[in-house]
Nucleic acid binder design. Sequence first.
DNA 1: TATAGGCATCCCTAGTGGCAATT
DNA 2: AATTGCCACTAGGGATGCCT
Length: 825
Amino acid sequence: MELRFFPLDFDYQLREGKPFIYLYGKLEDNTKICVIQEHQPYFYAQFHKTNYAQIERRLKELIVEGKDGPAKITSWEIVEKELLGKKEEFFKIYVNYPKAVPLISKELSDWGLDCYERDIPFIHRYLRDKNILPFSLVEAKGKFILDQKMRVPLFEAEEIKPFSNETPPKFKILALDIETYSPERIEINPEKNPILMIAFYGIDEKDKEFRKVLTWKKFRHKLDYLETVSDEVELLQRFRQIILDYQPDILTGYFSDGFDLPYLHLRAEKYKIKLDLGLDYSELETGSKSDFREGKSRITGILHLDNLKFIRNIFGKNLKTESYSLDAVSEELLGHRKHQVKISELAHTWDHLPDKLEDYCEYNLHDAHLALQLCQKLLPDMIEFTKIIGIPTFDLIRMSFSKLVENYILKSAMEHNVLAPNRPGKNEIDLRMDQTYEGGFVYEPTPGLYSDLAVFDFRSLYPTIITAHNIGPESLNCSCCELEKRNNIPGEKNYWFCARKKSFLSKLLERLILIRVDLKGTLKEAKANGEDTKMLESRSYAIKTLANSFYGYTGFFGARWYCLECAKATTAYARDYIKKTIEKAQQKGFEVVYADTDSCFLLLKDKHLDPALEFMNEVNFDLPGHMELEFEGYYPKGIFVAAKGSEKGAKKRYALISENGKIKITGFEIVRRNSSPLAKEVQMEVLKLILIDKKEEALFYLKGKIKELLAGQIAKEKLVIKTQITRELSSYTSIGPHVAVALKMLERGINIFPGVVIEYIIAKGSGLIRERAKLPEEVKDGEYDSEYYLHHQVLPAISGIFAVLGYKEEDLYKDSSQTGLGQFF
DNA sequence: TATAGGCATCCCTAGTGGCAATT
DNA sequence: AATTGCCACTAGGGATGCCT
């Protein structure tokens, strides 16, 4: 019989010694199902034909003992594949089970053979071989089989193939959040501290909601979703039952990979409760006990999506947020925040004031609700990335950027009969890491307040250069073009790219660019018709993100398709194009104010935009391929400042105001996390006023603020400086203020790890700044170091701006500081 | 096992030289 | 007179976070 289903989660198992892929998903009527299919693992090897017969005999006899039984080669065939542009013959070697691939290939490597694609995860291999995309409708031919070890019907497929691109319209999603007992502030200790409450927030395909909070303390309340159990053991048992009863397609949370699920797991282990939540009765898998924060949490058959992982790895660069806390991310993506509850007092409330626990239950449920909404919001993006890259969503959202690109290339490699180069070994990585090359060109601006600026930039500069100039490891230094192309790359020598045969990499990129152009048309149409465009936008974003990552990938030391010349040539062309554009503008009589990598700022004469647009068209006329210079915008005013302690114009630091009064800030303290809100606020106000020609007002405002500052009247929150810890505290050679504060926090039992953002205030006192750096709660109102905030925060933020108008730094604070100091002496 | 390089800025670190106190 | 200790000053570099 035939059936159609949407595969969502994947696994493989040996059945009577044979490898089977397990595709967990649902039918079009939302019934859950597991489809299995046998599949042969394989890899490739290359060896010299002279030894052919001898090698074949050895292959036949080879047996390596492994955990899953003796690893053997089941068969092999000779195939022609393209490796880095060269067509060659390889042996495709099939083995008896997935883990035999590393065992057998290791042995073959020891014989001196080159092995390829021996580290491709078996499930990824299968999906690519069958051309199946997760979340897309798949057709399977076969029969239902009985298996008592499954919680869902099991269907064995003889044949399986993609049916359509369709994605399920709705999912059954369950979000999860736990609260734990922690007397010592943020201490996390699953050995010692129990779980106090668990919140669930679910939604099914019919939009019916499910809300529940479990807790094991009895108290009076008015919450209809609260279920009280007798103790933590029962709490964990109920947790298990609720997941099993609800049967979600997707389980979600916020850092559920590294906190909620491993914590539940460790507490369950403590009481010897089995969390056999998998649809095959397998247990919840989480990271190791010692560093569970780093691990992944998996339940076989239920797709676990940790929103934080996706945001941190992939989606985050699209966000403005300075922190990846649930609160900050929810605010940006959903427009609402966490409930404000003093979570540090939960333990005390639990012990002594149980009647006040209701607030915490609400808080707990609300967090689960936020996780659910985040998942719903991000799911289209996760799905579109999944469909383009063709790997399980579980793996995808936990992947670094470079791996995303690599997996996209791997999928396409199969379609183009290209063999993947191996990942670099340790020595190779070390060599690559020593290599650097020149990047983009930045034009030094002359400090000043300018009027009437037109900004142009190259659309997708690097991707379009790669395709227009056929850059790629496969086309590098071809023998056919050597004589004619040897010195074609601007400013580069002794390498070139083929003019005849398109490289695999640039072909791929070109395909992405074309799909996106097409998509933009569809999107426009859909919008005009008032259709829902979320999915199309997600797809467009995914494609753009991927395309933009190709260049960085070729210069990345860990890449399979590493190609230093490719990266070098890409930036060399880019520098050439932007410099030529600048020259051309100057020849046309425009003054160029600034340029960075792919952008160019022109001064308009008498406000006339038309000549500038004409110039743009002329540039475009000469550009190859998909390259295009675009008009980014017109700005009535813009300010460029000097670098500190220098006459020279500062690069990457300017502000523009558009016709509708919107201010665009680049590089200034305003957009930097590690600057106090006070400095940001003052800088913003001053810039605003100056950009609308209110210089006097700006100065007046500033002096007022300085007076306030020196009088100790600035609110504490405005003085908080936030700085991230980026490594283990012990590996700092230079102890800055944030590290000093972090060390203090560590002493108090607060968990500090890379990624934590430290908040501190500089208090009065003497000595090094770090000696005065205090936790915000340690500093009483007015006890901040006003001199520090004046000379290290406020003045540096605005003196460059006022300098453009001809003011010296002393002019800015002299009179106000006298009145200010008068209060102290 | 971190997609790239370019850049401004802050603050610590280590080195230098000057000066006064000490041997 | 030579040595030591302290201080002020500065160049250089570690560290962070931005820009494209």
